[in-house]
């Protein structure tokens, strides 16, 4: 408690990109807020639907400018760009990132391609099995069967608890 709180360490290259993205968003929001005012047929800006977005846009503009300025001042623009390059290389090579991305792809397939297009229990069983096999992969028939059983039991429990016990509608 006696120690002075320091800023958490993050990748400054990514901080720079986040700042630029926020900056772009803030400009877009400010332009959009003028459009809202013109389109909602309110004479005065202070009562139009563009007021709040404009205020948010201005605040984000200031904060992102401070964010970019701080990052560039501490690490220089060139340093930030080099860090972005290094980060991209690490990102492409990292096994953890690969695992996370594959996991996210499985989530995406489940949410965007399977749900609503096939029975919920089937989609859930397939996804659970895929996720469990992927996360804890081991080339052993016994382990695979065990994980498939866990997926089956998990799917049954989810449907039993949510749909049957609590009458929650399923996707």
């Amino acid at each position: 408690m006696e120690q002075k709180q320091t800023r958490p360490q993050t990748r400054y290259g990514i901080d720079f990109i986040a700042g630029v993205v926020t900056f772009a968003v803030s400009i877009y929001v400010m332009i959009k807020s003028i459009t809202f005012w013109k389109e909602d047929f309110v004479d005065v800006f202070y009562y139009s639907s563009g007021l709040m977005p404009m205020m948010i846009g201005i605040c984000l503009f200031i904060f992102s400018a401070l964010y970019i300025r701080r990052t560039v001042k501490e690490h220089t623009l060139k340093g930030c760009l080099v860090d972005v390059k290094n980060f991209s290389i690490e990102f492409v090579k990292s096994k953890d990132v690969h695992k996370t991305l594959i996991g996210l792809v499985i989530f995406w397939i489940y949410i965007f391609l399977m749900l609503g297009k096939m029975p919920f229990w089937l989609a859930t069983f397939i996804t659970l099995s895929a996720l469990l096999l992927f996360i804890t992969w081991e080339k052993s028939a016994k382990k695979i069967i065990k994980l498939l059983v866990i997926s089956g039991v998990g799917t049954f429990m989810i449907i039993f608890v949510f749909q049957i016990m609590f009458k929650v509608p399923m996707p």
Binding site: F107, L128, L131, I135, I150, G154, I158, V168, P171
Partner: peptide, 22 residues
């Protein structure tokens, strides 16, 4: 690692349940 995929399915149901919208 075994629990989290099941938690993910709970997240999906939790998001769906309020408005029943995919």
């Amino acid at each position: 690692k075994i629990l989290m995929p099941i938690v993910f399915i709970c997240c999906v149901i939790g998001a769906f349940v309020v408005s029943n919208r995919l």
